[in-house]
Computed example of a mutant assay.
Amino acid sequence: MASSHRDLVVWQKGVDLACDIYRLTRLMPREEAYRISGQIIRASSSIPANLAEGNGRATRRDYAHFVSIARGSAAELETFLIIIGRLELAPKEQVSELLVRTEEIGRMLTALRSRLATTTKAPPDT
């Protein structure tokens, strides 16, 4: 396991993504503040938060469980971004770029989860 969750590239990318999701919600219609905006903020911030919690756990199995939760949050965020794009609630270019980054993080989480489940060595700094 990485010595700190902050050393994980996927955690760093997750924090950057969550910050950019917050910025995106500022561009959305005001009436969405209590609808989809809150949901995408929670889903995006859940990705790095679960990585941090999992990295702080005592066992690889616990860590893998929290990586799985983070992967679920990434899939949830991806779904919300698709909905936002279809409803044209935010600039299409920004939504597309965030969607690409969310998919990349999802792949990184899948790889990290796989390494945690199949190896006895510490995973690389993904």
Rank of each mutant, 00 (worst) to 15 (best):
T126P: 10
T102P: 06
R60C: 04
S3H: 14
R57T: 00
D125S: 15
M28V: 01
E93S: 15
N55C: 07
A2M: 11
G72K: 06
Y22D: 09
Q39Y: 08
T110P: 07
G85I: 10
V15N: 03
L81P: 05
A122Y: 08
I47C: 01
A18D: 06
R115Y: 14
G85E: 09
P124R: 10
G106P: 08
A33H: 00
I84H: 04
I40K: 04
D62R: 06
T79M: 08
D125W: 14
R71P: 01
A74G: 05
V15C: 03
L24S: 04
K92D: 12
R113T: 02
I21S: 10
N55P: 03
L51S: 03
H5Q: 07
L17V: 07
A111K: 13
R60L: 03
R42L: 01
T102S: 03
S46M: 00
T119C: 06
T110A: 13
S4D: 15
S3A: 15
S73K: 03
L27K: 13
L24Q: 02
A75R: 03
S96A: 14
R30L: 01
R113Y: 10
K121H: 12
R26W: 00
I69Y: 06
A75H: 07
A33M: 00
V67A: 10
A18V: 01
G38S: 02
G85V: 05
R61E: 06
M1F: 03
D20G: 04
A122Q: 15
E31G: 01
L8C: 12
P48Q: 03
V10L: 07
A49C: 06
E78R: 12
E93K: 15
S68Y: 00
K92W: 08
S68W: 00
P29G: 05
A70S: 11
I84G: 11
R101C: 10
T118C: 04
E32G: 06
E97H: 14
R86L: 15
P48R: 07
P123H: 11
R113D: 05
S114D: 11
G38I: 02
L51C: 11
I69P: 01
G54P: 05
A49P: 05
R6Y: 11
S44E: 02
P48C: 02
V9S: 06
D20P: 05
T79W: 12
L87N: 08
E103M: 13
Q94Y: 11
R35A: 14
I47T: 01
